[in-house]
């Protein structure tokens, strides 16, 4: 018997199955590419070998958690801060700080006695997140998974402005034009992102050990090293660093089941159903909300985006 966790992020969609002992039984990693429903369906196709009855409960998280919740029939729909904290604490009770850098968000989470006591997320700026690194890798024509290796080969990183993604990019281009080598520029970029993270998100927060570094960007060994250089101590990257959100939501699903609740999970066969979304320009009042209607086999299963709740309450009631 298993618990399912689905993390639909801006860049990747991660799905995990855990058993009663929190062991990861299966996992799928896909690029979201702006199509969350398709990503979930593609993932579920790979998991069809499991029966619906084998899943005791399902949870979703990530910025696409709401849509994912409707699609799979989730029992628990939770924000990614809580999910990441739950997963990290399960792996190591002593973790005090979590650095999580994903596609469009970066976060710092402070824990004390097993509870989140503080957190911060990047504000309106996306500097220092995965999608920025992705873009720079693309521009330099270096595969993103080689980025870390390049950074580690450098011994004199170039100084790059890290406060803003636009500034960082133009600074990088100027340094390239002066002939600095790629290794030093990439290493400098990692340092700039870490500087930005520590000045911006972690400002005024005490970073206590033990520190976990998770999220997609933790794959980049250059970032890990830059954090360690800046902090002066070791930073741990857990084995399933990029699945932590999904693991957390599976654990939350387990908690839900253990409270005696029954699952609403719809099974892996939803991979073959047709899902559509339709935008309705609601003219009920001057707010003119853009309401999204979700359809499964042309039947509405959910609405969101309305401010007053007139649409979203429709489905909950039925």
């Amino acid at each position: 018997m298993y618990y399912l966790g689905v993390d639909v992020g801006s860049v990747s969609t991660d799905i995990v199955l855990i058993d009663e002992n929190f062991k990861i039984i299966d996992k799928v990693y896909l690029k979201t590419k702006g199509r969350p429903i398709k990503a979930i369906q593609d993932g579920f196709r790979e998991l069809k070998k499991y029966k619906k009855e084998e899943i005791l409960a399902a949870g979703t998280t990530g910025s696409g958690r709401q849509i994912a919740g409707y699609v799979i029939g989730a029992d628990v729909v939770k924000n990614e801060i809580t999910a990441h904290a739950v997963a990290a604490l399960y792996i190591d009770k002593d973790v005090k700080t979590i650095i999580e850098i994903g596609g469009q968000d970066s976060k710092i989470i402070t824990l004390k006695d097993g509870v989140v006591t503080d957190f911060a997320m990047n504000t309106v700026c996306a500097a220092g997140t995965g999608s920025f690194l992705d873009r720079q890798a693309e521009r330099l024509e270096i595969p993103i998974d080689k980025f870390g290796e390049y950074a580690l080969r450098s011994d004199s990183p170039v100084r790059i402005a890290g406060r803003c993604a636009v500034f960082a990019e133009s600074d990088m281009i100027h340094k390239q034009q002066l002939g600095y080598c790629e290794e030093d520029i990439i290493s400098g970029l990692c340092e700039a992102l870490v500087r930005n993270y520590l000045n911006n998100l972690a400002k005024g927060k005490e970073i206590k050990q033990k520190v976990f570094f998770q999220g997609g960007v933790a794959a980049n060994a250059g970032m890990k090293k830059a954090f360690e250089n800046a902090l002066g101590f070791e930073v741990y990257v857990p084995e399933y660093y990029s699945y932590m959100g999904a693991v957390g939501s599976a654990i939350l699903a387990k908690e839900y089941y253990e409270k005696g609740n029954k699952t609403k999970f719809l099974g892996f066969n939803i991979a073959d159903l047709s899902f559509n979304t339709k935008t309705i320009d609601c003219s009920g009042c001057s707010n003119r909300c853009e309401v999204v209607e979700m359809l499964r086999e042309n039947k509405p299963i959910g609405f969101f985006g309305d401010r007053c709740g007139k649409w979203s309450e429709k489905v909950k009631a039925s």
């Binding site: 910025s63 939770k78 924000n79 990614e80 801060i81 809580t82 968000d105 509870v115 989140v116 006591t117 503080d118 957190f119 997320m121």
Partner: peptide, 9 residues
């Protein structure tokens, strides 16, 4: 996300 995480906390 921020509001929900804060309320959970």
């Amino acid at each position: 996300t921020r509001i929900e995480a804060f309320s959970d906390m």
